[in-house]
Computed example of a mutant assay.
Amino acid sequence: MFTGLVEDLGTIVSVDRDGDGAVLTVESRLAPQIGEGDSVAVNGVCLTATGIRGERFGFDVMLESLRRSSLGELDAGSAVNLELALRADARLGGHIMQGHVDGVGAVSGIREDGFSRVVTIETDPDLLKYVVEKGSIAVDGVSLTVSRVDDSTFDVSLIPETLERTNLGGTSVGRTVNLEVDVVAKYVEKLVGAHAR
């Protein structure tokens, strides 16, 4: 489980792709805290750490993860948001996240609003039905509050801390981002749907 509070901005060192998936190698100051087999959220996708050497470690990314996320678009030099799995004795500062990306969105607008930056993201209506104003959503693994939503887009407002500590600070229109909606909304939908039949 994760909270969406990014712990480090890592750098992709290499991406080795073949027909079976991809192997990502990442460099991060978090490496000394990671053990073989630990879960790490990479741009919001829960992956298993392997091959830890110094400040570098790797991840095997299966085809399912490549299809459902933006990880397949990463190249050497890409900045990635990293979060270690939540410990049982830690404070839940963001919101409950599983690292199971529900889909992707495309940044369709960016505007400054005082010291914050408003980012508009377009995504599939099947995903937007779980997005509510003032609710939580994970964008590239960052826990954010939805500030506006309509039938095709939603807005999130980024404070200076988020702009500095995550890769969302360097985002641009057209960029693909990973989205994970609030898991509670999906459970409620399933339970209500079962009783409505």
Rank of each mutant, 00 (worst) to 15 (best):
P32Q: 10
I34V: 08
E36A: 05
E36I: 03
S39L: 04
V42S: 00
V42F: 04
G44I: 10
G51F: 00
I52C: 00
I52M: 00
G54Q: 04
R56S: 02
D60E: 15
V61E: 01
M62N: 08
L66W: 09
R67Y: 07
R68T: 04
S69W: 06
S69R: 09
S70H: 09
G72W: 14
E73K: 08
E73I: 06
L74Q: 03
G77P: 01
S78F: 09
S78R: 06
N81D: 06
L82M: 03
E83P: 09
L84Q: 06
L84N: 07
L84D: 11
A88R: 13
A88L: 15
D89V: 07
A90T: 12
A90M: 12
R91D: 08
R91E: 14
L92I: 14
G93E: 14
G93P: 00
G94L: 13
H95I: 09
Q98Y: 08
H100Q: 04
H100R: 10
V104E: 12
V104N: 09
G105P: 01
G109W: 08
R111H: 13
R111S: 14
E112W: 11
G114C: 14
R117M: 06
T120G: 01
I121R: 06
T123C: 02
D124F: 10
P125G: 14
D126S: 07
Y130D: 11
I137D: 04
A138H: 06
A138D: 07
G141A: 04
S143P: 01
L144V: 06
S147T: 15
R148T: 02
V149R: 11
D150W: 05
D150K: 01
D151N: 11
S152H: 14
T153C: 11
T153W: 15
T153S: 07
